[in-house]
Structures are given as structure tokens and as C-alpha cells.
Nucleic acid binder design. Sequence first.
DNA 1: AACCAGGACGTGA
DNA 2: TCACGTCATGGT
Length: 232
Amino acid sequence: MNLYGVYKKLFATYGAQGWWPLTACGATGAAESVSSHGYHPEDYTFPHNDRQRYEICLGAILTQNTAWVNAEQALMRLHSLKSLSPKTILHLAPHTLIWAVQPSGYYNVKAKKLRCFTRFWMTLQGTEPTRNQLLDVWGIGPETADSILLYAYGRHEMVVDAYTRRILAHLRFLPANCSYDQMKAFCTQHLPCDVPLYQEFHALIVEHAKHYYRRNPYTDPVLLPRNAGKNG
DNA sequence: AACCAGGACGTGA
DNA sequence: TCACGTCATGGT
């Protein structure tokens, strides 16, 4: 099975994931309903405005090496401060921003990252950032940059992560110590050039890895049903 | 009770 | 370039 076969198998198994998740307030614009996820299954025209794009960017930073539920709590706190927007977030006192970011961990660095990114965002004036521009922002590395480009701007950039590395290595497509750029190039080369497919692929990888790639040794009954590849 | 979560940065070799 | 320590909360 090639990588496109992997995609089709995961999609058949888990269905459309509808990433990127927004908070309910971000997805609907409602001021009060700040509860669960605002997924957008099979609405690939998403996001619809700069406010949603901005929330995706903050979420991408807040979820770095952190469970999404924790990042979401931080977004909720920002919303409760009416500061889930570039203009207002920069007016927060340092300790207030740190309080908001605290549930997502790394609160000192992430508060700084949000400030750095927001200053950059303001310079964009609504225009789309390039990948190199994003990488020049302190706190934005390759995965966060690609997440922003793919999910906030619908750009044709594959997002890969630690889960992707585990799966690609387990399927023996790439060595376990492969680089981010190697993974990205491999995925780009072996998948159709289709933005919604890219969005779903990464989301499906994460969903699948949560099931079978949390702890070594990995067993994957979906992609490796009968002990295949045991002998290298 | 370790171990992990949708990484990135700073440093030293 | 690359390996390694650091950042930190919350769930299993």
C-alpha cells in the first residue's frame, strides 16, 4: 500500500475530520457559547474571515507539543478577556496574558510567541504571509508555519509532525530519524495535489496516531493488519 | 507514577 | 548541521 492508499484507508476508517477546530465562539461568532469544538466537516471554504484565520494561528501556536484540549482552554480564556483579536491581545498586561495562556503549558514562552506573532499579523494588513515570513517570526517553526498556511490560508503546504514520523517509520516508508523536510517532501510527492485532501490527511494521521501510535511498541491493525513488514 | 501531548529555541560540538 | 536540554500544564 502506497501513501495515497494509506490516506484512503484512514478516510474510510475515520471519515472527514473537518480540521482546523475552532472554539465555538470562533466558529459561529456567538459571544456567549464558549463550549465545545467548532469543527467544519466537509466545509472546505473555511475559514471565512480574518478573525477565524487569526484564531487558527493562535491555536497552532498554543498547541505546540500540547494536547488540543489544553490549547483550547487558553483560547477560551483569551475570549473571556475579549482578547481573541490582534488589536486587543496586545493591550493585555503581561501577567494577564500569561494567566490566559497558562492551561496550555509553557506559558512564558507561549505568551511571548503570541505577542510576536500578533505584531507580525498587524504588519500583514490582511495580506497572506509567505512561508519564509512566518519562519522569521520568533516561535513559529516549520510545522506551525505549514499549519497556518494549510488551514488558515488554504495553501498547498503539507503539515507533518511527530505522529507522521512514527507512522511513516512504522510503515517503513522513511527512517525514524528523518527530517521534517524529508517527510514533507515524501508526502507531497506521493499524494494528489489537493488542498482539502492535505487538510484531511494530516488530521487523519493525528486521529489514527492517537489510537495506535502513543506508546512503543506500536501495533497498527488498520494499516498493518497481519504483522506485515516484520522481516524488514 | 511515569509518560505523553498536533514543537521551537538556545547552546555546544 | 545535529543532538540535547529547556520550557510546563493536564490527562492516562
